[in-house]
Design a protein around this nucleic acid. Structure first.
Lengths: 223, 223
DNA sequence: TGGTCATATGACCGTCCGGTCACACGGAGG
DNA sequence: CCTCCGTGTGACCGGACGGTCATATGACCA
């Protein structure tokens, strides 16, 4: 939790420090990220950082929280914008396209997402991942429930399993195009937008098809 | 690549160093893992480590490679043991149970798997993940092709998409029960064996059901 | 016995780390 | 004009790091 001093700072100074911290932690991770570098890049004395935060972990926690709030705010229209006028699989693919486009254009948020997903220290990971996961769950579950309400997903669809799979998958989808060696087999890297959209559909299809209530979502089985 | 001196060492000494390195890297990751600690725990002078490996990265690369070989050797019976006498979904759930049980009993291999999956430095990650992924792909693709050959998966099943999803999922399944805060929504932690098996089925079902060729794998759709 | 050589050792090096602290600065209130 | 206090600063601290190297050890052979 930042100190009262932090809240009295000019927005410009706060933003410079936040950006420098996102950049450093997002590039090197928590434990390897350097407060010296953050202070230098922000144009601020290192001692000042300790006037705003109680220490390295406090700063990283703040960075992770702010980042997840920004990401969530950007995705909100897709989370509560489903009304059943298009089929749910298409809506989900559209949302994932927006998800990928967002991270393609926001290297800072992408880096912090990588850092929070790759942290080894259990104490740090718990401080970061649990609230972030809660944010994602609170947005995704209503979306799936809405899909059941509109009749796009079957009433007996296993929402818990679907949610767990999506939560594992989402960070990988966000990072794969920009993090070489992470999940090279995912067919989303270095391709045109139409091919990427098609491939997103190929990844989502097996997840959703079995729970789809509308016939048009289910391909004809071979005899 | 280890030096010739390493290969001339007594197996006991090699094993002590390998175990200490697996433990340290598996607990703290590559960049935070300490050669001082490895040398101390192995009962060996730090200078000796530099007689066996050219540096920290060389040692970690060796550790990751040995670990993936051990894991692969243990899973081999499940990878080429599918002959179609049971349906493929059941075989896959059986294999995943073996996968989870293996990592439950092998904290060293589990730690190294975590370390290789959570490494931030791109150079280190590429040195480690690419060959490891290649090992997994070389074992999993023939298994899926075998399932197509026996008629358990449809001939038009999207094997590339399935493989990509499995490759993303496998490390998470291995680590979730022992790495708090990693993927808490995955329903595999702190439960009895039968419940865990049932939940594994719930996770695999949406992945495979749409591509299954046998009717018994596909639940009755609601009208 | 004396010499050679592969190996083992740990003190030591330069560097960087997170964190501290004595001090400088400047606007507000007397 | 002086004092105070919130704020900004960077030199400094103890410690840990990866890596080096002069020296010690001991097996083997002449």
């Amino acid at each position: 939790m930042p100190t009262p001093t932090w809240t009295r700072l000019s927005p410009a100074r706060r933003e410079r420090i936040l950006v420098a911290a996102m950049d450093e932690f997002g590039t090197h991770g928590y434990s390897t990220g350097s407060l010296n570098v953050i202070a230098r890049e922000a144009g601020v004395a290192k001692g000042s950082l300790f006037q705003y935060f109680s220490g390295k972990l406090d700063l990283f926690t703040y960075v992770a929280e702010q980042t997840s709030l920004r990401i969530y705010a950007h995705m909100q229209p897709w989370l509560d914008g489903y009304d059943g006028t298009i089929d749910f699989t298409t809506h989900l693919v559209n949302s994932l396209e927006a998800w990928l486009d967002y991270f393609a254009g926001q290297p800072l948020e992408r880096g912090v997402t990588a850092a929070t997903n790759m942290e080894m220290d259990p104490a740090v990971r718990n401080a970061i991942r649990v609230p972030v996961n809660a944010i994602y769950l609170s947005g995704l579950r209503p979306l799936l429930e809405q899909a059941v309400a509109t009749g796009d997903l079957r009433k007996d669809a296993d929402l818990d399993a679907l949610l767990a799979l999506l939560l594992v998958l989402l960070p990988h989808l966000a990072l794969v195009p920009h993090v070489p060696g992470l999940d090279d087999p995912l067919p989303l890297t270095g391709i045109h937008a139409e091919v990427r959209r098609e491939n997103l559909g190929r990844l989502v299809a097996p997840l959703l098809a079995d729970y789809s209530a509308r016939d048009r979502d289910r391909p004809t089985p071979s005899p």
